[in-house]
Design a protein around this nucleic acid. Structure first.
Length: 450
RNA sequence: GGCCUGUUCGUCUAUCGGUUAGGACGCGGCCCUCUCAAGGCCGAAAGAUGAGUUCGAUUCUCAUACGGGCUACCA
Protein backbone atom coordinates (compact mmCIF):
# COMPACT_ATOMS: atom_id res chain seq x y z
CA UNK A 1 0.00 0.00 0.00
CA UNK A 2 1.55 3.22 -1.16
CA UNK A 3 -0.97 5.37 0.52
CA UNK A 4 -4.06 4.97 2.59
CA UNK A 5 -5.50 8.19 1.38
CA UNK A 6 -9.22 8.09 0.75
CA UNK A 7 -10.24 8.40 -2.88
CA UNK A 8 -13.93 8.66 -3.62
CA UNK A 9 -15.74 9.46 -6.81
CA UNK A 10 -19.02 10.68 -8.19
CA UNK A 11 -19.69 8.94 -11.48
CA UNK A 12 -22.83 10.30 -13.09
CA UNK A 13 -24.16 9.46 -16.49
CA UNK A 14 -24.96 12.60 -18.47
CA UNK A 15 -28.67 12.31 -19.03
CA UNK A 16 -29.42 16.00 -19.30
CA UNK A 17 -30.30 16.67 -15.72
CA UNK A 18 -28.86 16.17 -12.26
CA UNK A 19 -31.21 14.31 -9.99
CA UNK A 20 -31.48 15.60 -6.45
CA UNK A 21 -30.57 12.12 -5.23
CA UNK A 22 -27.48 12.18 -7.42
CA UNK A 23 -26.61 15.56 -5.99
CA UNK A 24 -26.81 14.11 -2.50
CA UNK A 25 -24.65 11.17 -3.52
CA UNK A 26 -22.09 13.64 -4.83
CA UNK A 27 -22.40 15.64 -1.61
CA UNK A 28 -21.81 12.63 0.63
CA UNK A 29 -18.79 11.62 -1.41
CA UNK A 30 -17.47 15.15 -1.24
CA UNK A 31 -18.10 15.35 2.51
CA UNK A 32 -16.27 12.11 3.10
CA UNK A 33 -13.30 13.25 1.05
CA UNK A 34 -13.13 16.56 2.85
CA UNK A 35 -13.64 14.95 6.24
CA UNK A 36 -10.83 12.47 5.70
CA UNK A 37 -8.54 14.76 3.76
CA UNK A 38 -8.91 12.49 0.74
CA UNK A 39 -9.63 13.15 -2.90
CA UNK A 40 -12.99 13.69 -4.56
CA UNK A 41 -12.97 12.55 -8.15
CA UNK A 42 -15.50 13.27 -10.85
CA UNK A 43 -15.89 10.73 -13.61
CA UNK A 44 -18.37 11.02 -16.44
CA UNK A 45 -19.93 7.72 -17.44
CA UNK A 46 -20.76 8.66 -21.00
CA UNK A 47 -20.68 5.24 -22.61
CA UNK A 48 -24.03 5.75 -24.27
CA UNK A 49 -22.81 7.88 -27.16
CA UNK A 50 -26.26 8.39 -28.63
CA UNK A 51 -27.70 9.83 -25.48
CA UNK A 52 -24.77 11.73 -24.03
CA UNK A 53 -24.09 15.25 -25.15
CA UNK A 54 -21.74 17.94 -23.95
CA UNK A 55 -24.74 19.98 -22.92
CA UNK A 56 -25.78 17.13 -20.67
CA UNK A 57 -22.33 17.06 -19.11
CA UNK A 58 -22.50 20.80 -18.63
CA UNK A 59 -25.62 20.35 -16.53
CA UNK A 60 -23.69 18.11 -14.16
CA UNK A 61 -20.64 20.33 -13.94
CA UNK A 62 -22.75 23.41 -13.36
CA UNK A 63 -24.85 21.65 -10.75
CA UNK A 64 -21.84 20.54 -8.75
CA UNK A 65 -20.23 23.95 -9.04
CA UNK A 66 -23.41 25.65 -7.92
CA UNK A 67 -23.52 23.41 -4.84
CA UNK A 68 -19.89 24.16 -4.15
CA UNK A 69 -18.78 20.56 -4.55
CA UNK A 70 -15.37 21.08 -6.07
CA UNK A 71 -13.58 18.02 -7.41
CA UNK A 72 -9.89 17.35 -6.98
CA UNK A 73 -9.65 15.28 -10.11
CA UNK A 74 -11.83 15.18 -13.17
CA UNK A 75 -12.83 17.12 -16.23
CA UNK A 76 -12.33 20.86 -16.41
CA UNK A 77 -14.82 21.27 -19.23
CA UNK A 78 -17.71 19.33 -20.69
CA UNK A 79 -15.61 18.31 -23.67
CA UNK A 80 -14.69 14.60 -23.36
CA UNK A 81 -11.43 15.26 -25.15
CA UNK A 82 -10.86 18.49 -23.30
CA UNK A 83 -8.56 19.33 -20.40
CA UNK A 84 -8.78 17.65 -17.04
CA UNK A 85 -7.04 17.65 -13.70
CA UNK A 86 -5.60 14.50 -12.14
CA UNK A 87 -3.18 11.70 -12.84
CA UNK A 88 -5.55 8.88 -13.69
CA UNK A 89 -7.55 10.36 -16.55
CA UNK A 90 -9.17 10.57 -18.96
CA UNK A 91 -12.20 11.17 -16.77
CA UNK A 92 -14.73 10.42 -19.48
CA UNK A 93 -15.49 6.75 -20.05
CA UNK A 94 -15.87 7.44 -23.73
CA UNK A 95 -12.12 8.11 -23.77
CA UNK A 96 -11.10 5.00 -21.89
CA UNK A 97 -12.04 2.28 -24.36
CA UNK A 98 -8.53 0.87 -24.48
CA UNK A 99 -8.51 0.14 -20.77
CA UNK A 100 -11.68 -1.87 -21.00
CA UNK A 101 -10.46 -3.91 -23.96
CA UNK A 102 -7.27 -4.81 -22.14
CA UNK A 103 -9.12 -5.84 -19.03
CA UNK A 104 -11.55 -7.97 -21.01
CA UNK A 105 -8.68 -9.62 -22.87
CA UNK A 106 -7.06 -10.41 -19.55
CA UNK A 107 -10.22 -12.06 -18.27
CA UNK A 108 -10.66 -13.93 -21.54
CA UNK A 109 -7.10 -15.22 -21.58
CA UNK A 110 -7.37 -16.42 -18.01
CA UNK A 111 -10.63 -18.19 -18.68
CA UNK A 112 -12.60 -15.95 -16.34
CA UNK A 113 -14.78 -14.73 -19.18
CA UNK A 114 -15.95 -16.25 -22.43
CA UNK A 115 -17.52 -15.31 -25.72
CA UNK A 116 -21.17 -16.05 -26.18
CA UNK A 117 -23.29 -15.10 -29.21
CA UNK A 118 -20.95 -12.24 -30.03
CA UNK A 119 -20.93 -10.90 -26.51
CA UNK A 120 -18.49 -11.49 -23.68
CA UNK A 121 -19.83 -12.97 -20.49
CA UNK A 122 -18.20 -13.03 -17.11
CA UNK A 123 -18.07 -16.29 -15.18
CA UNK A 124 -19.85 -15.38 -12.01
CA UNK A 125 -19.41 -17.48 -8.92
CA UNK A 126 -22.44 -19.37 -7.71
CA UNK A 127 -21.66 -19.01 -4.02
CA UNK A 128 -23.25 -16.12 -2.18
CA UNK A 129 -21.14 -13.01 -1.82
CA UNK A 130 -20.95 -11.15 1.44
CA UNK A 131 -20.86 -7.36 1.17
CA UNK A 132 -19.42 -5.50 4.13
CA UNK A 133 -21.28 -2.27 3.71
CA UNK A 134 -20.31 0.70 5.84
CA UNK A 135 -23.90 1.88 6.01
CA UNK A 136 -26.11 -1.16 5.57
CA UNK A 137 -23.90 -3.61 7.43
CA UNK A 138 -23.13 -7.15 6.40
CA UNK A 139 -25.22 -8.23 3.43
CA UNK A 140 -25.18 -11.80 2.17
CA UNK A 141 -26.28 -11.75 -1.42
CA UNK A 142 -27.76 -15.08 -2.58
CA UNK A 143 -28.42 -15.84 -6.22
CA UNK A 144 -31.85 -14.92 -7.51
CA UNK A 145 -33.89 -17.54 -9.29
CA UNK A 146 -32.79 -16.28 -12.69
CA UNK A 147 -29.18 -16.09 -11.64
CA UNK A 148 -29.41 -19.65 -10.40
CA UNK A 149 -30.17 -20.68 -13.98
CA UNK A 150 -27.35 -18.62 -15.43
CA UNK A 151 -25.19 -16.66 -12.99
CA UNK A 152 -22.91 -15.33 -15.72
CA UNK A 153 -23.53 -11.82 -17.00
CA UNK A 154 -22.60 -9.85 -20.08
CA UNK A 155 -19.65 -7.49 -19.75
CA UNK A 156 -19.26 -6.64 -23.44
CA UNK A 157 -22.27 -6.39 -25.73
CA UNK A 158 -22.32 -8.04 -29.11
CA UNK A 159 -21.79 -4.61 -30.68
CA UNK A 160 -18.50 -4.37 -28.82
CA UNK A 161 -19.65 -1.88 -26.21
CA UNK A 162 -18.65 -2.71 -22.62
CA UNK A 163 -21.46 -2.61 -20.09
CA UNK A 164 -21.79 -0.60 -16.92
CA UNK A 165 -20.66 -3.29 -14.46
CA UNK A 166 -17.40 -3.76 -16.29
CA UNK A 167 -16.46 -0.15 -16.95
CA UNK A 168 -17.51 0.96 -13.52
CA UNK A 169 -15.28 -1.60 -11.84
CA UNK A 170 -12.34 -1.15 -14.20
CA UNK A 171 -12.38 2.60 -13.70
CA UNK A 172 -12.69 2.37 -9.94
CA UNK A 173 -9.74 0.00 -10.00
CA UNK A 174 -7.60 2.09 -12.35
CA UNK A 175 -8.44 5.28 -10.54
CA UNK A 176 -7.55 3.85 -7.17
CA UNK A 177 -10.97 4.38 -5.66
CA UNK A 178 -10.96 3.33 -2.00
CA UNK A 179 -14.58 3.92 -1.06
CA UNK A 180 -17.61 3.58 -3.27
CA UNK A 181 -20.37 5.75 -1.88
CA UNK A 182 -23.47 5.42 -4.02
CA UNK A 183 -27.21 5.01 -3.94
CA UNK A 184 -28.78 1.94 -2.42
CA UNK A 185 -30.16 1.06 -5.82
CA UNK A 186 -26.72 -0.36 -6.56
CA UNK A 187 -26.57 -2.63 -3.56
CA UNK A 188 -27.77 -5.67 -5.49
CA UNK A 189 -25.21 -5.01 -8.24
CA UNK A 190 -22.41 -4.95 -5.75
CA UNK A 191 -21.97 -8.72 -5.71
CA UNK A 192 -21.15 -8.59 -9.42
CA UNK A 193 -18.70 -5.80 -8.86
CA UNK A 194 -16.94 -7.55 -6.00
CA UNK A 195 -16.61 -10.68 -8.13
CA UNK A 196 -15.07 -8.62 -10.92
CA UNK A 197 -12.55 -7.02 -8.58
CA UNK A 198 -11.55 -10.47 -7.38
CA UNK A 199 -11.22 -11.64 -10.97
CA UNK A 200 -8.81 -8.78 -11.59
CA UNK A 201 -6.85 -9.98 -8.60
CA UNK A 202 -7.48 -7.07 -6.29
CA UNK A 203 -9.48 -6.38 -3.17
CA UNK A 204 -12.65 -4.42 -3.86
CA UNK A 205 -13.01 -0.94 -2.40
CA UNK A 206 -15.10 -0.36 0.69
CA UNK A 207 -18.76 0.16 -0.04
CA UNK A 208 -21.26 2.55 1.48
CA UNK A 209 -24.75 2.40 0.02
CA UNK A 210 -26.78 5.38 1.02
CA UNK A 211 -30.57 5.30 1.15
CA UNK A 212 -32.68 6.88 -1.55
CA UNK A 213 -34.59 10.13 -1.57
CA UNK A 214 -38.29 9.62 -2.22
CA UNK A 215 -41.15 11.94 -2.97
CA UNK A 216 -43.11 13.25 -0.04
CA UNK A 217 -45.72 10.55 -0.57
CA UNK A 218 -43.09 7.82 -0.47
CA UNK A 219 -43.04 7.11 -4.17
CA UNK A 220 -39.92 7.03 -6.24
CA UNK A 221 -38.69 10.43 -7.28
CA UNK A 222 -38.45 10.44 -11.01
CA UNK A 223 -37.47 13.01 -13.56
CA UNK A 224 -40.82 14.72 -13.81
CA UNK A 225 -41.48 15.08 -10.10
CA UNK A 226 -41.13 18.57 -8.70
CA UNK A 227 -37.86 18.93 -6.90
CA UNK A 228 -36.21 16.08 -8.78
CA UNK A 229 -33.95 18.22 -10.90
CA UNK A 230 -31.24 20.30 -9.29
CA UNK A 231 -31.62 22.94 -11.98
CA UNK A 232 -35.08 23.62 -10.64
CA UNK A 233 -33.65 24.89 -7.37
CA UNK A 234 -31.40 27.26 -9.19
CA UNK A 235 -34.31 28.56 -11.22
CA UNK A 236 -36.60 28.89 -8.23
CA UNK A 237 -34.16 31.12 -6.44
CA UNK A 238 -32.94 28.73 -3.79
CA UNK A 239 -29.59 29.34 -2.22
CA UNK A 240 -27.09 26.55 -2.74
CA UNK A 241 -26.05 26.72 0.90
CA UNK A 242 -29.61 25.97 1.93
CA UNK A 243 -29.99 23.10 -0.53
CA UNK A 244 -26.72 21.57 0.62
CA UNK A 245 -27.66 22.01 4.27
CA UNK A 246 -31.02 20.39 3.69
CA UNK A 247 -29.49 17.49 1.79
CA UNK A 248 -27.09 16.90 4.67
CA UNK A 249 -30.09 16.44 6.94
CA UNK A 250 -31.54 13.70 4.78
CA UNK A 251 -30.08 10.49 6.13
CA UNK A 252 -27.56 12.15 8.38
CA UNK A 253 -27.86 14.12 11.57
CA UNK A 254 -25.49 16.18 13.72
CA UNK A 255 -27.36 14.65 16.68
CA UNK A 256 -27.45 17.88 18.61
CA UNK A 257 -30.88 19.14 17.59
CA UNK A 258 -29.50 21.72 15.23
CA UNK A 259 -30.85 22.12 11.74
CA UNK A 260 -28.82 24.95 10.32
CA UNK A 261 -25.19 24.00 9.97
CA UNK A 262 -22.34 25.45 8.00
CA UNK A 263 -20.76 23.12 5.51
CA UNK A 264 -17.52 23.34 7.52
CA UNK A 265 -19.29 21.98 10.57
CA UNK A 266 -20.74 19.13 8.58
CA UNK A 267 -17.36 18.30 7.08
CA UNK A 268 -15.94 18.08 10.57
CA UNK A 269 -18.65 15.79 11.91
CA UNK A 270 -19.60 13.75 8.87
CA UNK A 271 -18.81 10.06 8.74
CA UNK A 272 -20.11 7.04 6.91
CA UNK A 273 -21.27 4.78 9.76
CA UNK A 274 -23.70 7.39 11.07
CA UNK A 275 -25.66 7.52 7.86
CA UNK A 276 -29.20 6.25 8.37
CA UNK A 277 -30.21 3.10 6.55
CA UNK A 278 -33.73 4.02 5.60
CA UNK A 279 -34.99 6.09 2.71
CA UNK A 280 -35.89 9.71 3.32
CA UNK A 281 -38.84 11.60 1.92
CA UNK A 282 -38.21 14.97 0.44
CA UNK A 283 -39.91 17.81 2.28
CA UNK A 284 -39.95 20.86 0.05
CA UNK A 285 -41.61 22.95 2.75
CA UNK A 286 -38.76 22.41 5.14
CA UNK A 287 -36.22 23.22 2.46
CA UNK A 288 -38.05 26.47 1.83
CA UNK A 289 -37.96 27.27 5.51
CA UNK A 290 -34.23 26.60 5.61
CA UNK A 291 -33.74 28.71 2.52
CA UNK A 292 -35.56 31.54 4.26
CA UNK A 293 -33.20 31.19 7.20
CA UNK A 294 -30.20 31.56 4.94
CA UNK A 295 -31.75 34.29 2.88
CA UNK A 296 -32.52 36.37 5.93
CA UNK A 297 -28.89 36.38 6.95
CA UNK A 298 -27.63 37.41 3.56
CA UNK A 299 -25.58 40.61 3.56
CA UNK A 300 -27.47 43.35 1.68
CA UNK A 301 -25.03 43.42 -1.25
CA UNK A 302 -25.48 39.73 -1.91
CA UNK A 303 -29.20 39.95 -1.43
CA UNK A 304 -29.35 42.81 -3.91
CA UNK A 305 -27.33 41.00 -6.53
CA UNK A 306 -29.49 37.88 -6.35
CA UNK A 307 -32.68 39.92 -6.14
CA UNK A 308 -31.81 41.94 -9.23
CA UNK A 309 -31.15 38.70 -11.05
CA UNK A 310 -34.47 37.19 -9.94
CA UNK A 311 -36.35 40.33 -10.98
CA UNK A 312 -34.63 40.37 -14.34
CA UNK A 313 -35.67 36.78 -14.89
CA UNK A 314 -39.25 37.90 -14.40
CA UNK A 315 -38.82 40.70 -16.92
CA UNK A 316 -38.31 43.50 -14.42
CA UNK A 317 -35.31 45.59 -15.40
CA UNK A 318 -34.06 47.36 -12.30
CA UNK A 319 -31.37 49.10 -14.33
CA UNK A 320 -34.06 51.46 -15.54
CA UNK A 321 -34.26 52.86 -12.01
CA UNK A 322 -31.78 54.88 -9.94
CA UNK A 323 -29.40 52.65 -8.06
CA UNK A 324 -30.18 54.24 -4.69
CA UNK A 325 -33.86 53.72 -5.30
CA UNK A 326 -33.36 50.05 -6.17
CA UNK A 327 -31.20 49.55 -3.10
CA UNK A 328 -33.68 51.17 -0.80
CA UNK A 329 -36.56 49.25 -2.32
CA UNK A 330 -34.85 45.89 -2.02
CA UNK A 331 -33.82 46.65 1.53
CA UNK A 332 -37.46 46.56 2.53
CA UNK A 333 -37.71 43.01 1.20
CA UNK A 334 -34.70 41.55 2.95
CA UNK A 335 -35.83 38.94 5.41
CA UNK A 336 -39.38 39.00 4.16
CA UNK A 337 -39.27 36.34 1.45
CA UNK A 338 -38.16 32.74 1.56
CA UNK A 339 -37.32 32.44 -2.10
CA UNK A 340 -35.94 34.88 -4.61
CA UNK A 341 -38.62 33.74 -7.01
CA UNK A 342 -41.19 35.40 -4.73
CA UNK A 343 -39.63 38.81 -5.30
CA UNK A 344 -41.26 39.85 -8.58
CA UNK A 345 -44.69 39.51 -7.03
CA UNK A 346 -43.56 40.90 -3.71
CA UNK A 347 -41.62 43.94 -4.83
CA UNK A 348 -42.67 44.44 -8.43
CA UNK A 349 -44.76 47.48 -7.53
CA UNK A 350 -41.57 49.45 -6.95
CA UNK A 351 -40.61 49.06 -10.57
CA UNK A 352 -43.76 49.89 -12.47
CA UNK A 353 -46.08 52.84 -12.80
CA UNK A 354 -48.95 50.60 -13.68
CA UNK A 355 -49.99 48.88 -10.48
CA UNK A 356 -52.70 46.35 -11.06
CA UNK A 357 -55.65 46.90 -8.76
CA UNK A 358 -58.07 44.11 -8.08
CA UNK A 359 -61.56 45.64 -8.35
CA UNK A 360 -63.02 43.37 -5.67
CA UNK A 361 -60.28 44.18 -3.19
CA UNK A 362 -60.57 47.84 -4.06
CA UNK A 363 -64.30 47.86 -3.47
CA UNK A 364 -63.79 46.20 -0.13
CA UNK A 365 -61.01 48.48 1.10
CA UNK A 366 -62.44 51.67 -0.32
CA UNK A 367 -66.01 51.59 0.83
CA UNK A 368 -67.91 54.85 0.60
CA UNK A 369 -67.12 55.92 4.17
CA UNK A 370 -63.53 54.82 3.96
CA UNK A 371 -63.02 56.72 0.76
CA UNK A 372 -63.43 59.95 2.66
CA UNK A 373 -60.78 58.94 5.14
CA UNK A 374 -58.36 57.95 2.43
CA UNK A 375 -59.00 61.25 0.72
CA UNK A 376 -58.08 62.98 3.97
CA UNK A 377 -54.99 60.86 4.29
CA UNK A 378 -54.05 61.65 0.73
CA UNK A 379 -54.28 65.34 1.47
CA UNK A 380 -52.27 64.95 4.66
CA UNK A 381 -49.58 63.14 2.69
CA UNK A 382 -49.64 65.90 0.10
CA UNK A 383 -48.70 68.38 2.80
CA UNK A 384 -45.81 66.27 4.01
CA UNK A 385 -42.47 67.93 3.48
CA UNK A 386 -39.96 65.27 4.44
CA UNK A 387 -42.04 62.29 3.35
CA UNK A 388 -40.04 60.14 5.73
CA UNK A 389 -41.37 56.90 7.14
CA UNK A 390 -41.61 58.35 10.62
CA UNK A 391 -43.43 61.46 9.45
CA UNK A 392 -45.80 59.43 7.31
CA UNK A 393 -46.61 57.16 10.22
CA UNK A 394 -47.34 60.19 12.40
CA UNK A 395 -49.50 61.70 9.68
CA UNK A 396 -51.46 58.51 9.18
CA UNK A 397 -52.05 58.10 12.89
CA UNK A 398 -53.15 61.70 13.18
CA UNK A 399 -55.71 61.23 10.41
CA UNK A 400 -56.85 57.98 12.00
CA UNK A 401 -57.37 59.72 15.33
CA UNK A 402 -59.21 62.53 13.62
CA UNK A 403 -61.53 60.05 11.95
CA UNK A 404 -61.93 58.08 15.13
CA UNK A 405 -60.60 54.82 13.69
CA UNK A 406 -57.55 52.66 14.24
CA UNK A 407 -54.71 52.58 11.76
CA UNK A 408 -56.02 49.49 9.97
CA UNK A 409 -58.77 51.12 7.89
CA UNK A 410 -56.19 53.55 6.53
CA UNK A 411 -53.22 51.23 6.23
CA UNK A 412 -54.86 48.56 4.15
CA UNK A 413 -56.37 50.71 1.41
CA UNK A 414 -53.18 52.73 1.17
CA UNK A 415 -51.13 49.61 0.77
CA UNK A 416 -53.52 48.28 -1.83
CA UNK A 417 -53.48 51.54 -3.76
CA UNK A 418 -49.72 51.82 -3.80
CA UNK A 419 -48.70 48.18 -4.23
CA UNK A 420 -51.71 46.32 -5.56
CA UNK A 421 -51.19 43.76 -2.81
CA UNK A 422 -52.64 43.18 0.63
CA UNK A 423 -49.26 42.10 2.00
CA UNK A 424 -45.79 43.42 1.47
CA UNK A 425 -42.98 45.47 2.96
CA UNK A 426 -43.46 47.91 5.80
CA UNK A 427 -46.01 50.44 4.55
CA UNK A 428 -44.37 53.61 5.82
CA UNK A 429 -40.98 52.69 4.45
CA UNK A 430 -42.41 51.66 1.15
CA UNK A 431 -44.21 54.98 0.86
CA UNK A 432 -41.05 56.89 1.66
CA UNK A 433 -39.17 55.03 -1.03
CA UNK A 434 -41.88 55.42 -3.65
CA UNK A 435 -41.85 59.13 -2.92
CA UNK A 436 -44.58 61.67 -2.69
CA UNK A 437 -45.33 61.96 -6.39
CA UNK A 438 -45.86 58.29 -7.02
CA UNK A 439 -47.80 57.78 -3.80
CA UNK A 440 -50.21 60.59 -4.55
CA UNK A 441 -50.73 59.45 -8.10
CA UNK A 442 -51.44 55.93 -6.98
CA UNK A 443 -53.81 57.00 -4.24
CA UNK A 444 -55.67 59.27 -6.62
CA UNK A 445 -55.95 56.55 -9.14
CA UNK A 446 -57.33 54.10 -6.59
CA UNK A 447 -59.80 56.69 -5.30
CA UNK A 448 -60.93 57.41 -8.82
CA UNK A 449 -61.47 53.81 -9.77
CA UNK A 450 -63.12 52.68 -6.54
C1' G B 1 -42.12 -14.70 -8.62
C1' G B 2 -36.73 -14.52 -6.73
C1' C B 3 -32.83 -11.75 -4.14
C1' C B 4 -31.62 -7.54 -0.98
C1' U B 5 -33.17 -3.85 2.38
C1' G B 6 -36.04 -0.73 5.59
C1' U B 7 -40.15 0.64 9.48
C1' U B 8 -39.98 6.56 16.18
C1' C B 9 -45.16 12.44 15.60
C1' G B 10 -47.88 14.10 8.58
C1' U B 11 -42.26 14.93 7.21
C1' C B 12 -36.77 15.10 8.66
C1' U B 13 -34.68 13.21 12.98
C1' A B 14 -32.58 12.34 18.71
C1' U B 15 -32.45 8.03 21.86
C1' C B 16 -25.50 3.72 22.64
C1' G B 17 -32.39 -1.68 27.76
C1' G B 18 -34.76 1.98 32.60
C1' U B 19 -36.55 9.19 29.37
C1' U B 20 -42.89 12.81 31.42
C1' A B 21 -39.75 9.36 24.07
C1' G B 22 -36.31 15.30 22.87
C1' G B 23 -35.69 18.82 18.62
C1' A B 24 -37.00 20.84 13.69
C1' C B 25 -40.52 21.76 9.48
C1' G B 26 -45.63 21.96 8.97
C1' C B 27 -50.32 22.64 11.77
C1' G B 28 -53.49 25.19 15.87
C1' G B 29 -53.72 29.06 19.76
C1' C B 30 -51.83 33.46 22.26
C1' C B 31 -48.38 37.72 22.37
C1' C B 32 -45.92 41.43 19.42
C1' U B 33 -47.47 44.46 15.29
C1' C B 34 -48.82 49.30 9.75
C1' U B 35 -49.97 44.19 6.26
C1' C B 36 -47.15 39.85 5.57
C1' A B 37 -43.21 37.59 7.46
C1' A B 38 -39.77 37.24 11.49
C1' G B 39 -39.57 36.69 16.82
C1' G B 40 -41.58 34.98 21.85
C1' C B 41 -44.83 31.63 24.56
C1' C B 42 -48.22 27.46 24.56
C1' G B 43 -50.56 23.16 22.26
C1' A B 44 -52.05 18.73 19.28
C1' A B 45 -49.02 14.94 17.10
C1' A B 46 -44.87 8.90 17.09
C1' G B 47 -42.16 3.81 18.72
C1' A B 48 -46.38 -0.77 12.21
C1' U B 49 -48.46 -5.61 14.42
C1' G B 50 -47.59 -10.21 17.16
C1' A B 51 -44.48 -13.25 19.85
C1' G B 52 -39.77 -14.11 22.41
C1' U B 53 -35.24 -12.67 25.54
C1' U B 54 -35.02 -9.65 30.12
C1' C B 55 -36.53 -7.52 36.59
C1' G B 56 -37.49 -4.02 32.55
C1' A B 57 -38.04 -3.11 25.77
C1' U B 58 -38.64 2.13 20.92
C1' U B 59 -33.80 -0.10 21.66
C1' C B 60 -31.93 -7.29 21.13
C1' U B 61 -34.21 -11.94 18.30
C1' C B 62 -38.00 -14.07 15.22
C1' A B 63 -42.54 -13.84 12.50
C1' U B 64 -46.31 -10.97 10.03
C1' A B 65 -47.80 -6.58 7.58
C1' C B 66 -46.47 -2.63 4.77
C1' G B 67 -42.64 0.29 2.04
C1' G B 68 -38.15 0.76 -1.12
C1' G B 69 -34.35 -1.35 -4.34
C1' C B 70 -32.50 -4.99 -7.75
C1' U B 71 -33.76 -8.90 -10.98
C1' A B 72 -31.21 -6.20 -19.16
C1' C B 73 -26.37 -7.32 -24.51
C1' C B 74 -29.63 0.53 -19.40
C1' A B 75 -26.56 3.24 -16.24
Amino acid sequence: MVSDMVRVRFAPSPTGYLHIGGARTALFNWLYARHTGGKFILRIEDTDAARNTQAAVEVILNGLRWLGLDWDEGPLTADPAGPSRGEVGPYFQSQRGGNYEQRVEALLSRGLAYRHEGAVKFKMQREPIVIHDLVVGEVKRELTDREAEDPDFVIVRSDGQPVFHLVNVVDDLDMGITHVIRGEDHLSNTAKHIALFHAFGVQPPKYAHIPLILNNDGSKMSKRDTGASLTGYLDEGFMPEAVVNYLCLLGWSPKDNREKLSIAEVVERFDLPQILRHNARFDMTKLQWLNGEYLRELPPEKFHAAAVHALARAGIDTNAWPLDYVRAALNTCLGKVKLFSELPAYAGFYFTDDVKLDPAALAKDLSAENKLRIQKLRDAFAEQESFSAAALEAALKAVAAECGVKAGPLVHPTRLACTGNSAGPSLYHLLEILGKDRVLVRMDRALASA
